[in-house]
Amino acid sequence: MNCVDINLQIGRSQVPQYGQASTVAELFQALDGTGITRGVVWHAAQRDGGPDVGNALVNQAIAGDDRALGCWAIVPPHTDHDLMTDDFFDRMRAERIVALRAFPEAHRYQLGRVTFGSFLDEVAERRVPVLLSLRFGADWPGVYRLLAEYPTLTVVLCDLGLWGQDRQSWPLLAEYPNVYLESSLVSLEAGGLEAVVQAYGAERVLFGSGFPFHYPHAAVLGLLQAELTEVDREKIASGNLRRMVEEVA
């Protein structure tokens, strides 16, 4: 089983994280033998240092290495003119950026229509996935508010939490067709992956490991040994993400 990972962090955190990988080369060296062969990366600096330095480091890290695609951090267009430029989406395409991340807590803004206005309408139209990490700054009330304001936005909920989050995430899967779950901590829960697939289909789950904060072998085995059809397993491992990336306009 080849996995394409939606949730890979590279870069050195300001507080060192065990097993962190500074570069894409180091990342795939650490993942060697796990079955994770490609992925979408974000950079620790996007959270710790700020989106300007972090986004630039993502561009630099993935340049020339087709195993990795990139993810940019977004900030309010009212204030951060150098990042949120008119040609934002053209620059994304040029740099092989296929997803966005928001860190509303670390970057101190409200993730919603008052702050992002038509920008997130365009993100939704272009079907660019927005990755929201429950570990890094997104919270459930904020996710619910965002989706109420942008119901067609493609949102991937990552790092769902150590307590099973079915009561929080399943209503969103039911209400919003473009909401997806990243798999790592879904598969941590006993029977969690099987339950969500049975309820909402394998199309709504994307493989992720949460590297370097969790063991990538765990996420891989969590998917490999889940009681799923091989067709569903392949969708989660790579098919859904490939389709999502192809659909980005």
């Binding site: 796990t34 941590l188 006993a190 029977g191 063991y215 085995l221 969590g222 040994q225």
Partner: peptide, 15 residues
Amino acid sequence: FPWFGYPYCVGTILG
């Protein structure tokens, strides 16, 4: 268990 499942937790030990 039944909080965490075996595939993931065994994968942690193996990783």
